[in-house]
């Protein structure tokens, strides 16, 4: 029994290596070695401690912006995913037209967000007298559009790519289209939904941040990054950047957790 188990060693190493990398990065940042490499100064790239202090000091302001961005990202994500799912259902029900529609959808995904964001801002001019609300609607529409595409294409694949003979099995029980849909296609689609979300969760945050640049009302993490840089308040800008990164990581973490729970027992 004296021998060490190689798997255990592997597992410990797979935590140690990345942690070591982070440590080296942080140390070289704090000791300004990183600044020499990038050819910059502590004014544009403030030290980690200073950024942390600013985050603490401005926590209530930052939280307001986080809330604004999160509302946009999450609402857009929800609406877009539901719409995308419904489109996929429609495409499955009408296979002749479904494929073409999805071709269109994936073509849309190649259109830069930057082009869409101003259109939405213009389109929603008359939605409300409150610039905050009409900006929010515009931003949500942008996020929704990006999320619709990935959900519709992935969910459609989930409905169509069935295990061999599983449809024949259902038919042998004289199941109708609706029963096949309910008992076979919907459960089959579950992993594909998560595939779609893995793309659209980070994309929803990116779209929210970028659409904030073009929005009328000045609020949100993305807009604050830009505004603070315009004002040359780099340390504050960095605090917002770190916040944006944390938002991305936390939301992705939540998604992974949901996936583990929902797809328990399935082979991924």
């Amino acid at each position: 029994m004296g021998k060490k188990n190689p798997y255990r060693k592997e597992r410990i190493l797979s935590i140690l290596y990345p942690a070591g990398f982070a440590l080296v990065l942080l140390i070289s940042w704090q000791t300004q070695i990183l600044h020499k490499i990038l050819g910059t100064d502590t004014f544009t790239l403030p030290l980690p401690i200073r950024i942390l202090t600013i985050m603490m000091d401005n926590s209530s302001d930052i939280l307001t912006d986080v809330a604004a961005t999160l509302i946009v990202a999450l609402t857009g994500l929800l609406l877009g995913s539901v719409l995308g799912y419904l489109l996929a259902v429609l495409a499955t029900a009408l296979p002749r037209w479904g494929m073409g529609g999805l071709n269109m959808a994936s073509a849309f995904s190649a259109v830069p967000i930057i082009a869409i964001a101003p259109i939405m801002t213009n389109l929603t001019k008359d939605v409300s007298d409150d610039p905050n609300i009409r900006s929010m609607v515009a931003k949500i529409l942008v996020v929704m559009l990006t999320c619709t595409v990935s959900m519709s294409t992935n969910a459609y694949r989930g409905f169509i790519e069935l295990k061999p003979f599983s449809k024949d099995l259902m038919k042998s029980y004289a199941a109708g289209s609706w029963t096949i849909f309910e008992k076979l296609r919907i459960p089959n689609c579950m992993p594909y939904i998560f595939t779609a979300l893995k793309v659209s969760v980070p994309a929803s945050i990116i779209s929210a941040l970028v659409s904030e640049y073009f929005a009328e009302y000045i609020i949100g993490v993305g807009r604050q990054i830009r505004e603070n840089i315009v004002l040359a308040q780099y340390a504050t800008a960095w605090a917002y950047i770190i916040t944006a990164c944390l938002m991305g990581i936390v939301m992705y973490g939540c998604l992974m957790l949901a996936e583990t729970i929902m797809l328990k027992g399935r082979r991924t």
Binding site: Y17, P18, V210, I225, I241, C245
Partner: peptide
């Protein structure tokens, strides 16, 4: 392999980080 272990988690992390949001700071740097 050690390089993979070291970098891979961060590669995953990049995909969760809104890089486009960082564009202004890259310009500043």
């Amino acid at each position: 392999r050690p390089l993979e272990k070291m970098i891979f988690p961060y590669l995953m992390l990049i995909q969760m980080i809104p890089i486009l949001g960082m564009a202004p700071i890259v310009l500043a740097v």
